[in-house]
Structure formats: C-alpha cells, structure tokens
Write a protein that binds this DNA or RNA. Sequence first.
DNA 1: TTCATGTATTCTGTATTCATAATTCAAGGT
DNA 2: ACCTTGAATTATGAATACAGAATACATGAA
Lengths: 218, 218
Amino acid sequence: MAIQRRPLREQIREELLLRLDRGDFAAGKDINEVVLAAELGVSRTPLREALITLAGEGVLESNQGRGFRFAPVSSKEFRELCEIVAGLESLALELSDPDELREMAPELLRLARSFPDPVAEQSEIEWHDDEWHDLLLGKCPNERLLDLVTSVKAGMRRYTHLIAGEDTLLEREAEEHCRIAEHLRAGDVAAATAALRDNWVSGMERMTSRIPVTPESA
Amino acid sequence: MAIQRRPLREQIREELLLRLDRGDFAAGKDINEVVLAAELGVSRTPLREALITLAGEGVLESNQGRGFRFAPVSSKEFRELCEIVAGLESLALELSDPDELREMAPELLRLARSFPDPVAEQSEIEWHDDEWHDLLLGKCPNERLLDLVTSVKAGMRRYTHLIAGEDTLLEREAEEHCRIAEHLRAGDVAAATAALRDNWVSGMERMTSRIPVTPESA
DNA sequence: TTCATGTATTCTGTATTCATAATTCAAGGT
DNA sequence: ACCTTGAATTATGAATACAGAATACATGAA
C-alpha cells in the first residue's frame, strides 16, 4: 500500500468534524487555539488553517480579534441549509443520466430497506444515511456540484447529533428513501426529484422541534 | 465613520481575486509563496490563510508538498459552475417574496437598460453585471444561500477576463436581463426563473468558445 | 454602591524560524 | 547517448516567537 501523506490541516478538519458529530463542542462556544492545539498535539498554525477552512464552510464564525467560535445553531439556519441541500441534490439528480439512475435503483432500494437494521450505533446510522445519498448522487457528472454538496453538508453536521437515538425519525427517513428509489426504478426522474425535495423538507420539519432556542433563532 | 479593522487574510483574498479578474495570473501556474508575499508586502502566514480560503472556493488547488496553483481553466468546469449558479440563483428567486420582486422590477429594468452605457471600463461592466444579479437576489431571505452564491461566483472569476471587450456578448446579457425583469414586473416568477436559467445557459455557451483548450478540458 | 478609568492578563493575528519534502542538475554507469 | 543515482538547492509545511487587541480585574471617584 502506498503511504499517504496529507496536510495536517485536513486531518485536523476531519477530527474537528468528528468531534462535532459526537456533540463534543457546545454551540456558540469560543475556541481557545492554544488549548485545542495542545489537545490535538499540533501547533497553532495547521490548527488555524483548519479553522479557517471550517469557517469558510460555515461551521465556524470568526470575528476580528476574537478568534473562532462554533456558529450557534438556529432553526432558521437549519432551514436555510435544508433548502440549499434540497436544491443542490435535486439539481444533481436532474443532471444525472436517467438510465444509470434506473440501473442503480435496485441497489438503492436494498440499502434503504436495510436501514433500521439491528440497533446500530448512532454514528453507524448517520454514516449509512450519508452513504445512501452519496450513492444516489454518484452518477452526476458535475463534480464541482458534488464537492459543493459535501461542503454544505459539513455545515449541517452541527445538527446531526441532535437526533441521536430517535428511531421513528430514521424509519420515516428509510421510507422516503424507498419511495425515491422506486420512482427511479420506474424511470420517473422528475418524481424522484420531487420526492427527494420532500425528503429534505420533512427532515427539516422533523428536526426543527429539537433545535434549542437561542437568541438568534427565528 | 467607524474605523474598520479586517484580517489581512481577507484583504489578501480580495486583492488576489482582483488580480485574477485583471488576468494577471496564468491559469495553471504555480504560486511561489515567498515571492507573492513579498510582492503584497505581507508575511507568508496571512497569505497562506488566504490561499487556503481560495482553495476551498475552488479558485486554487493544493497538492501536498507542491503548494498552491491556480486551477487550470476548462470548459467542463465552466459548464459545471454555470449549472450550479443557475440552480442556486433560480432557487433564490423561488424563495423570494413575489411581491417584493414585483416592486423591484422597475429598478432592475432601469439598470438592465443602462447596460451598454458609454464605452465603460471592463472592470466597470463586470461590476455592473454583478450588481444587477445581487439586486435581483437581494430579497431572498436565505442568507446562507446568498453567501454560497457569492462563494461559487468567486470560482468563476478565473473566466471573466476572457470576455474582455466583447460588446455583442454584453448586449445579449442586457437583453436577457430585461426579459427577466419584465417577467417579474408581470408577477410571473416562474417565467423569470426560467429566463434566469436561460441567461446562465446562454452565457455558458457564449463563453465556451473562448476558453483555451488544455489537456484537462472536456 | 455603582460607575468609570487605568492596569494586568489572555489570546489572537502576524512574522519569523526550522525541518523536510520536492525539484534540479551534474556525475557516473550501462 | 540515455538512464540512474545522489548531492545541492528551493519551496513548502509546521513550529515558535512576537506585537498588539480584547478582556478581566482592581482601584478610585461620584
């Protein structure tokens, strides 16, 4: 196997996103660069590079002289992110080759049905959901679009840990995935796209109630 | 007036984008950090921070150990970017309040008609075009979406200087803007959205022919 | 007691330094 | 002549050092 050398900033970014999924960080909390760098065992330089990247993705905010902080969660922002991802994923689907989508439909259906499997780990479930969407969009030829979706979804990671251990939500998610896959199997991309939008809208509504109310929530 | 203090990295980012518009940088060219930092009169640290930000926006690419380079232009990428921006701007329009759009229509129409004004500076014209689109989308309540549009458009700046001094292209642009504005004045958001998409598609086609062919072009 | 002002401390933003990977070029071998 | 190998150079990636802004705290006046 070829030894992989990747910049520290990327590894740090992923580690921070992982911790975000685990809910390690309090939203709205200021980051102390010296402390966090020591905790990660790196210097401030690559840490700051990672922080800047994450700020660009909307995961963090930065204020002159005040450094970085985890952007506070708000139902307004979550709604905005859902609208964006819904639009982007729909677009990706429309740009995909309908024939390839139809070919992939059985696999998508299989995956969607194996959703509530045994009582899996939370992280496992989230990964599963991500994988399904990745597979769905994988045939889209617009690479920049796929990168953009990934980036925007990074900004949603601050919200994922809020649905930890909610079986009913996941069952509905699985249901909706099945519906999308069935539309694709029937070759009806337009209907699948509409279902995909519904998926995000309903996901948004399901989530909204469990976002803690903060001063900046709308 | 309040004195504004902004991080160097942001100022550097904007300066680099400005130079990109002017076509100062050869696409695909490696960046020498020491030289560029000296040229800008700053140290490598904030320069690298700006470079990392731009890499996140797709303006640059980075390779381990090889530093940063301006991402080579390709008609494939330009097409992808146009598809994305068309989708995002359409979405923004759909999310806007139709009444506010109708109110704004006269102003948009006025701006669109004043397009080919006298023989203005190239930079002036580009700024004018941007301003029109910004005004069009300004009423969209989804702030994250607007930020995203701005960010993606930054990635398109590598292409703008290619249309320098093409009057006919700009006239067609103005025409299309008028059409969009008239749909809005009539209260037909759906038609305006469609026209907006067409605007990007035709802009894409107009541009494609003048993108130099490189090995990675499709 | 409360508010304002000056001072100390903390932490960020930027510069500089150091280590090592990548590149270049020349010498030697096939 | 061409390819390989290795030293020298160059530039990046990362760590450290430094200056100054923001914050916290304490002291003193109203």
